[in-house]
Amino acid sequence: MVLTVEHVAKRYGSRVVLRDVSLRVGRGRLVGVVGENGAGKTTLLRILSGDLGADAGAVHIDGTLGYCPQYPVLDEELTPRQHLRLFQIAYRLPGLDRAESLFRELGLTPYDRQPVKTLSGGTRQKLNLIVALMHDPEVLLLDEPYQGFDWETYMSFWHIAHRLREAGRTVVIVSHLAYDTQRLDALYRLGDGRLHPAPATGAQG
């Protein structure tokens, strides 16, 4: 298993968000996690990414990790190009070929020298996603990754997700709506602090 989650629990004060979450995901799998607002989806993903501490449980990730947070976490004063340079250093990448290719695929190239504060919400979200993908991680955690995307970009996103799966990457996508269940290998519903397997899956390319 590339991603193993064992009995993870988390509470904020007296409010229990995650009671007992376990999950095992193999290589080359595209997995969805859905749940109502406030069910704890973002909390779970933040724990898996190491952004937030859990009260109990274990997480095992076998390989490099990419994490796309729910809201764009970017520097408003810098351009997308400058973001690439910073994350190139962070990921220690020799070049930016993959990032450039993602820029073109998601239509970000025309904006690459504009400060982020002048970009639309959807365009910021594209950069938010590319920053998580540009080092070709083995495990990808995506929190509502297509918020604000137009239809064409939305379809590009799924094209990229399926290409990643074919390349043996493991992708976990969190969403509050179960729109895309047919595109996934497995779907889980987060409710009552636990993950429940949900039906209606079967990946399409």
Partner: peptide, 20 residues
């Protein structure tokens, strides 16, 4: 700082060096 779960095991840093 990052927050590994109490008994987290990772095969490398969260976003590890990756040679291409």
């Amino acid at each position: 700082r990052t927050h590994p779960a109490p008994t987290t095991r990772r095969s490398g840093p969260v976003h590890a060096y990756r040679k291409r």
